[in-house]
Amino acid sequence: MYTNIRWRKFGKYLVKDKMASIGIAIIMVTIITAIFAPLLAPYNPNEASDTATRLAMPFTSGHILGTDSQGRDILSRLIYGSRTSILSATIPVIISGVISIILGIVAGFSKKIGGFIMRIMDVLFAFPSVLLAVVIAAILGPGLFNVCLAMVIVRIPYMTRVVYTDTVQEMQKEYIEAASAFGRTKFEIMFKELLPNVLPSLIVYATTLMGVTVVTIAGLSFIGLGIQPPTADWGLMASNGKNVLVQGDPYVTLFPGLAILILAVAFSMLGDWLRDLLDPTKK
């Protein structure tokens, strides 16, 4: 009676929705790969092996996906690169999600504080998010941590707006008035009544944002503001490959590019599925 989670619904939905199963499978595989990278990778990702040739074609001389311009094994670099990708996709979105849910609910609940919070958000909104990310990353300097911090700052206004809009809408409903009539405190109304009603759409939005973030961070690494060489990172790998792309060697860019794309799509599939799962009126 005191819990709201419905696990039976969870299982039922997973079987029904094939796309979602594929999305979740891809994300799970990426996470497992990231954790067990040292066991899975056939070569050291950052060093050319003794026998390596540069820019080896796939399936030649023991390199399934070939080697890059420095003779490093592309498959091994992809496996290690999943680490930064999965971390930089999820952690910043989760952190900005937590901050945004508090800001959004407080703003939607209290008109006075709300006006103040939302004006600050509007200022951040005025800049295109990619541009803002580039500027912040440039100011903070390169590196995984700084890129993640930039992503947190960039996402907060968007996520706060989602929570704020939902909260304002929920505040109109009678159950909020009922809650205060039956003795709920302001804090309880915000975090026990409103939170479960505004969280689902934020989770859906956040999941989709994770996909976008994979691409954005890869893009920042690509232009040199993100993760620094020689770290194995998908965006960085694609960046290195661009030099040899025109020379007729597409694989160096193709494989990391595909990996970024597939992970981004997997997150958006997961988002669609969560939307249905978290709707209480659907069974």
């Binding site: 009676m1 005191y2 709201n4 409903k173 009678e174 159950y175 008035e177 009922a178 809650a179 009539a181 039956f182 009544e193 479960p196 009603n197 209480p280 009126t281």
Partner: peptide, 18 residues
């Protein structure tokens, strides 16, 4: 105490009646 006009929205949709 009060009984609300619209029973459809007087309960939080994400919590059990009990």
């Amino acid at each position: 105490q009060i009984i609300f006009q619209d029973s459809g929205s007087a309960f939080n949709p994400r919590k059990t009646i009990g």
